[in-house]
Design a protein around this nucleic acid. Structure first.
Lengths: 256, 256
DNA sequence: CGATTATTTGAAATCGCTCAAGTTGGGTGG
DNA sequence: CCACCCAACTTGAGCGATTTCAAATAATCG
């Protein structure tokens, strides 16, 4: 996304204007306390002081950074089980905004330090998210627009496209996807413009791979064929129709 | 326990990879095995079974993924203090290769599960690396080639470009950088081609911002001016000549 | 010193971006 | 229920940054 003050302001507005006042950041300091955030609400902003670590129970949240000229990059989309909100320097390194209504648990660091079990789970999650980020870095650094869109859609389909993909079940190979992100958010997640996102979705539609009933409701008619477009399938896997990639991040568990 | 907590806290406060206390220090038990890797040697490959978690003591390692058609993306460059080699599914999600001679400590999973202190430090490190990846995702998703090169060079200069940048010291504002990566590795790290990397370095040279004595030895003549090209400075900061970004990852601590 | 590889440089092609309409869809009020 | 509005999305045309392809030059190593 490009530049200008307007764009920057528009981006900032989408979060706080659509709904309620900022859930004044960092209200939840009680150890292990449950917190609920409405859809499209800002949780904290880059530069804010860090209070606690959050783990998502349900819903999904996008973490993003803004360049000074207004360009935005969605750096992570976190969902159930994922953790966020901590930073080694006690200042948030990015902003957080819910995509849908979201429930989190807020942990005080002292609690984490006292509970090895909790800490172990936290570490496992962190590694998982690190691997997901590796995958995303690869997408951003080396994949074409079409491959990015295909990868994005595949990540929205549960149990498919991973190394444990069971392949088509039954006769057809359909999947229904409900997007929790606008075109603009998808674009900023995939490092593209909204026009490119739109055009590539249209292209998939014209090729008969998907149909788009509502803006945020997409039916994938041939999951395997879509998977071939992600750029992540080896030649051998292409012939077998299976996935070669390991530990690809699943967005399907993070949206909705 | 109190001592450990304080130590852990110190690690977090200081934040950046500049301080690199071993996560095993002050742990009475088995401190983990020391391992040494020669330059340009492969440590493991994507898909290999996970044995243990490594922490870098000295040197630097690049983590990369390969797409089936041969495209490569360097997803992370880890240096002193950083951890790598773990994966939630017990299969490496990427390959690891040393850039220079590197010393690591290898930790067993069981050791981590038994030592909360170790685990806490591991988590702190993981968060730090997560923030660095956020920064890198932003670079890949939203920055131009010139901005990527400028950002890359800035990250190779200690104590500059961060939010704690002290600005020019003394009359000149020079810095000497020794690259531990080839053009090809830099390209695969920044999501560019070798030609684009080369062209942009040449451009910086022609503009008098840097000079390149040997292929891997670059002198930055005006650090502040280079910093202006990273795309990470706000208008206000540009005028002040200071950095607005928070918790930017420092490559200077990770190379050579 | 020659062979080999890495890097630089040039010219042409291309993919994605920018700018500018046009269209759709959800919400509001008559 | 319909007309209208506004924001979000789609579509089109032209442009430009980066890639691709193809040398030429520089560095490295026996």
């Amino acid at each position: 996304m490009m530049v200008d003050e307007l764009a920057a302001r528009r981006i900032e507005r989408t979060g706080s204007a659509r709904t309620s006042p900022d859930i004044a950041s960092e209200v939840a300091k009680d150890p292990g306390r449950d917190v609920h955030f409405p859809p499209h609400s800002s949780i904290f902003r880059e530069g804010d002081a860090v209070g606690c670590v959050y783990q998502v129970r349900s819903g999904s949240i996008m973490l993003y950074k803004l360049l000074p000229d207004g360009r935005r990059q969605v750096v992570e989309v976190v969902g159930p089980g994922d953790v966020f909100g901590f930073s080694p320097v006690w200042i948030h390194d990015c902003s957080a905004q819910t995509l849908v209504a979201t429930e989190c648990i807020a942990f005080d660091r002292s609690l984490l330090e006292r509970s090895p079990t909790l800490l172990w789970r936290l570490s496992s999650r962190l590694y998982q998210q690190l691997c997901a980020l590796h995958e995303h870095v690869t997408l951003l650094g080396r994949k074409s627009a079409r491959e990015r869109i295909a990868s994005f859609l595949m990540r929205c389909i549960p149990d498919r496209g991973g190394n444990d993909c069971h392949g088509p079940r039954g006769g057809d190979d359909e999947a229904h996807v409900r997007l929790a992100m606008t075109r603009s958010e998808i674009a900023d997640y995939l490092g593209l413009t909204i026009e490119t996102v739109s055009r590539n979705l249209t292209q998939l539609k014209r090729r008969g791979l998907v149909s788009i009933s509502k803006l945020d409701e997409i039916t994938v008619h041939d999951v395997c064929r879509l998977c071939l477009l992600t750029g992540s399938l080896s030649g051998a896997a292409r012939r077998r129709g299976t996935q070669s990639q390991v530990a690809s991040s699943r967005l399907c568990d993070r949206l909705g």
